[in-house]
Amino acid sequence: MRHFTLMILFALLVAVVFALVGREGESGRLRYGLKIFTEFVGVGFALAWLLYWIPW
């Protein structure tokens, strides 16, 4: 399994639980879940780029 796939899977599963617990109603949950998922993946990419330039 590739690192990227793992990151996506991690973000997806965490977003599902956070959405279920954090919001009520289908549309609220869906929007919140998508927001959490996007944030996880976005921060993952940002950190990956940042770490790429750090030589140690």
Partner: peptide, 13 residues
């Protein structure tokens, strides 16, 4: 079910 599946999927992965 959705929450339980998410937790168990995370564990199995």
């Amino acid at each position: 079910l959705a929450g339980g599946m998410a937790v168990i999927s995370m564990f199995i992965t």
